[in-house]
């Protein structure tokens, strides 16, 4: 979780190097340290909402909103916050934004809110949000923290969407509700809409990512 500390560069951001650093932070979040594939964080809320692509995209949006703003606020308050109570303060900040998003969904997209059920609320315990606040926002300037939040949530959303595309396509032959595989010849594999399909898809996805990018130190345990 402390992998971000290598580019903690103090608070005073020199504008000359700022752009390059922004780009690097962005790339790290989206690709190199992709939140799910490398850190395997936040996987629980990830899988439950991937039965349809639409749900996965809304979840990605929720994370973008929460992570960006919570990183910003945590970073703004990082000098004022006493070290001992930082955890609970972070949780309170994150929970506030999650409540905002939940109320927004309930007010304007009630059906979506019903479909996502408790999983919007579970963003609070999503390890990515807390992890980024701890590992990045506490050490870096507000602007960089926002960039980091955006990058990490885009990376998260991409993986979520990947799993969702596989599950919706194989499971119901549709994408975003539009029929892609004709019912005339395609037999739906309902297993992929159900829970096991999510585990299989995620497992194979991790396998593929690891095969493309072998990690130098493989995890212990088989």
């Amino acid at each position: 979780m402390s992998q971000a500390s290598d580019h903690s560069h103090g608070s005073g951001d020199e504008c000359s190097s700022c752009r390059g650093l922004c780009k690097e932070t962005m790339k790290d979040g989206i690709y190199k340290n992709n939140p799910i594939t490398c850190q395997v964080l936040g996987i629980c809320s990830c899988l439950a909402v991937t039965n349809r692509l639409e749900n996965a995209l809304v979840m990605g949006g929720a994370l973008l909103f929460v992570l960006t703003l919570s990183n910003l606020i945590v970073s703004l308050l990082r000098k004022q916050m006493p070290h001992r109570i930082r955890m609970i303060a972070e949780v309170a900040i994150i929970a506030t934004f999650v409540i905002f998003f939940d109320l927004f969904l309930k007010a304007f997209y009630f059906d979506m809110s019903k479909q996502l059920g408790p999983y919007v609320g579970l963003i609070i315990t999503n390890c990515i949000v807390m992890g980024r606040a701890e590992a990045f926002a506490l050490q870096n300037s507000p602007l960089m923290s926002m960039v980091d939040g955006i990058a990490n949530s885009i990376g998260f959303a991409i993986v979520l969407a990947l799993v969702a595309v596989v599950r919706e396509l194989v499971g119901s032959g549709t994408l975003l509700g539009v029929q892609v595989l004709s019912e005339a010849w395609y037999v739906k594999n309902v297993l992929f809409v159900l829970a096991p399909g999510a585990f299989f898809t995620a497992g194979f996805l991790i396998w593929a990512f690891n095969a493309i990018h072998p990690r130098p130190q493989s995890e212990t345990g088989a």
Binding site: V40, L191, L194, A195, P196, G197, A198, F199, F200, A202, G203, F204, I206, W207, N210, A211, P214, S218, E219, T220, G221, A222
Partner: peptide
Amino acid sequence: GYSNVPEPLRGTGIVMLITGVLAM
């Protein structure tokens, strides 16, 4: 621990697949 799991699948990958079978 005694079985020969393909290298890229070790760790999280194989646990996910087994969890899928368990869920089934």
